[in-house]
Design a protein around this nucleic acid. Structure first.
Lengths: 144, 144
DNA sequence: ATTTATGGTTGATATTGTCTACTAATTGCC
DNA sequence: GGCAATTAGTAGACAATATCAACCATAAAT
């Protein structure tokens, strides 16, 4: 497969390939989860006092979709919802015991993918890549 | 929205935001197309003597999906299929007159997104980004 | 107190991705 | 030449992801 000169192609391919590899890794670990499950678990793990709204905002996804995935995660006993003392409309999300255990294994699976992705690329170059990527994100977000 | 330190987040966000912006741009131009339509049109436009197989290979997507989208494009009279003289199993894809006209407008729409994306980022930095991205792609592809 | 905005939910529907099985043609090999 | 293994494309079924609009309960604004 040839190298892509076009920024569009690079972004599409990267996202697609990365997603495909992650999916494979997760499946190899026998985790009964899809991509969204994993992503939300990660966000919940990272953010203390996380609400659905916050996830929707920081991923740019539709809140309806978030609700649905969270519901599934709760049904799998991976996530707990407790009332938010500061706002009775919303709920605080947290990983359950089981969820935390799963997270460990997810991290392992994804770390492997990341290691593959970054193989042989100097840290400095990766940092530059991330920095540029963030600038692009800023540009896109300002727009909307 | 905070900057992402994690390569995963950056890739996900970039792909998602870029897709969302492109979609909006296409819609603003009143083109009755979805993302895949656009992508395949672009590939067909770029490659002379393009076959379905080639597209499937170079995007990494399932060939069944490609078939479907192409069928839709043909139904919309945007793409023509002609027998491949070198292999009677396959067909050569090309843009129709209408398709070519549409392409011009698609390019305009996507160029705007790209301009937004790259605003204020020096060419050298963009080139480095693309180069690093391609290295990552190589890493991911070797794997599978 | 009434209006307006927000967090979350649900339903409907569109888009995208994956897997399997199948036909027809090609290729490799004997 | 004949036959097995590949390959290009198609079709069906289904899973995963995205989008949109309507809705309820609470909160915020005035």
């Amino acid at each position: 497969m040839p190298h892509q000169a076009d920024i569009r192609q690079v972004l599409w391919q990267l996202a697609f390939q990365f997603k495909a590899n992650s999916k494979r890794a997760i499946r190899d670990y026998d985790l009964p989860l899809n991509g969204m499950h994993v992503r939300l678990l990660q966000m919940i793990a990272r953010q203390p006092a996380c609400t659905a709204q916050r996830i929707a905002a920081s991923t740019g996804r539709d809140k309806a979709q978030i609700t649905r995935v969270i519901k599934e995660l709760e049904a799998m006993d991976l996530v707990t919802r407790s009332p938010n003392p500061e706002d009775r409309r919303s709920q605080l999300l947290a990983l359950s015991k089981t969820g935390q255990g799963l997270m460990t294994r997810i991290q392992e699976a994804e770390d492997e993918v990341r290691k593959t992705l970054l193989r042989g690329i100097p840290k400095k170059e990766v940092d530059a890549f991330i920095a540029t990527g963030n600038r692009m994100l800023d540009n896109l977000r300002e727009e909307s």
